[in-house]
Design a protein around this nucleic acid. Structure first.
Lengths: 159, 159
DNA sequence: GTATATTTGTTTACATGGAAACATTACAAA
DNA sequence: TTTGTAATGTTTCCATGTAAACAAATATAC
């Protein structure tokens, strides 16, 4: 007796339903894909996106306070404490408690930290170019602009 | 003797440098903001974005296999195992091992799971509307289209 | 001035998610 | 067949990130 077998759904047949128009879902997927590319390229150097962002902001804003850094990168203070401790242990970042406000902590790159950032700068920020072009250059520019507006980072131009 | 005090950097004065044009960074920031809104609205109901996505896909694709679901949502198989176990314990999802391939697991909503999805559908997918409009409707539509193209989900229409 | 509230960073305990090794089943080669 | 290889899901261990309670310093109210 023949049996009716339900067809097996393959990945590209999956009906994502309303997720098709869901911003949170699409942002998450996009981010995962970008990170995947990132690690495929740079994983071997032990560079991580979040860590390098932190160092970049300290590099660009010496004496920035830990809480300001955390808010700007949307990293929780509790987590920032741990991140900074690692950098301090590596000798890449120094912490100073300012006299004006002895609750705060001001951050600075050490000489080693500076060297690390500068030698890895291109490897890190030149990275986007290498990717498989999922969007045309015009589309990518458009998307970056929309994202900046979305996250309220429209002011000023890039480095 | 007067002392020269270095000006304290505030959040909106932070120079983000090349992160200004960095896709990974902007995507991450955008995603964090969307999730923040989401939890502000729906946190009290105990709904989580990832969980509801899983249920939605099982709802829209009954008998989908666990691995297919994982790949589509870019969730690692190891993690999917844990997610599905929770749904099973809650009585929202049932697992079946098909005869055609006894390694696989096919997923289905239980009656309770179906009820849960349907009663929470609007609360979940009607959510985007309520947000502070960071983008105009036209810009939002544009962004969704670009994101879909970016993540290769262009085919088909929503819902 | 003193009391209260807020800000800043840390600690601790927990939640979320991934990597690697594994067991089982299916497939391919000979 | 049987022998090796790949696919599927699970387990264990670890990394990343958050929540809540806390300590210290500052700001605010009276």
């Amino acid at each position: 007796m023949d049996q009716i077998i339900a067809p097996v759904i393959t990945v590209d047949q999956v009906d994502v339903g309303p997720l098709h128009g869901n911003l949170g879902f699409l942002l998450r997927m996009a981010q995962l894909q970008v990170y995947e590319d990132f690690y495929a390229d740079l994983g071997e150097y032990g560079l991580k996106p979040g860590e390098f962002s932190v160092l970049t902001l300290i590099y660009k804003n010496p004496h920035i306070r830990q809480g300001v850094l955390a808010r700007r990168l949307m990293i929780k203070r509790a987590h920032m404490t741990k991140l900074i401790r690692v950098f301090e242990d590596r000798g890449h970042v120094s912490r100073t408690i300012p006299d004006e406000d002895r609750r705060a902590v001001e951050l600075e790159l050490t000489a080693d930290g500076l060297k690390f950032v500068e030698t890895n700068w291109d490897r890190f920020y030149g990275h986007e170019k290498a990717q498989t072009p999922r969007l045309t250059p015009a589309e990518e520019k458009q998307m970056l602009g929309l994202l900046r507006k979305f996250v309220d980072l429209e002011q000023g131009d890039a480095q």
